[in-house]
Amino acid sequence: MAESSLWAMPIARSPIDFDGPHQVVDGWEVSTRTSDSALTIADESHLTKVVIRVTDGHSLAGALPPTGRAVRVAATLQVGSGPNEWYLFAAGETPDSLVAELEFECVGAFASWVDITHGRALMRITGVDAPRLLASHCAVNLADSVTPNGSAFRTSIAGVNADFIRDDREGVLSYLVHCERSSGQYLFGVLVDAGVEYRIDPVGIAR
């Protein structure tokens, strides 16, 4: 194998792109755009993301949140994304370190984890108008009584299957929207379009 400066410094790129300043942080090309809008949409696709799946009766099911709930354990967001299925999201971690504390061995049942960091798009919409914006496309009831902070659900939005995680920020309504990577730019565009009414503004990673 020849050495070349060309691939000495690989750059990871998010599926989502929007105008504004960019810089390379921890090997990822990220936006550093800022906004003082009350409703923002941020690209968090660079987060380390792992999906865990188990077969029926696996002991991990007791160690992770139930379907429909998301909890923070230290810096990791654990999401019960479906029956026998969880996501783990965290910034700046390796996939191995995310699952290091979990016990995958279990008699009579099987568990696996797969690194989906590069396979999914992840956006965060923050602001009091976030549920109204999402209701333009999302048929699931976003009322507090049905989907309070810490809820997680998957549904179809604008023709794309996506996970929604209500993960409020310092008391302000905030949702993570998670979908497979190739639809990320499309879904980002759909959400920005639906948010024009509420003056939505894309933001990058705060430094």
Binding site: M1, A2, S4, W7, V51, R53, V54, T55, A109, F110, A111, S112, V114, D115, I116, H118, G119, R120, E180, R181, S182
Partner: peptide, 30 residues
């Protein structure tokens, strides 16, 4: 006991085809 994870978009697939494909790939892989 089987778990299935879709990884269509987690992996970019590139096909290198042609008589020089081995030579080309050898220059960038271990």
């Amino acid at each position: 006991q089987v778990t299935i994870t879709p990884v269509t978009t987690a992996l970019v697939s590139i096909n290198i085809a042609g008589p020089h494909s081995r030579e080309l790939l050898s220059r960038v892989t271990d």
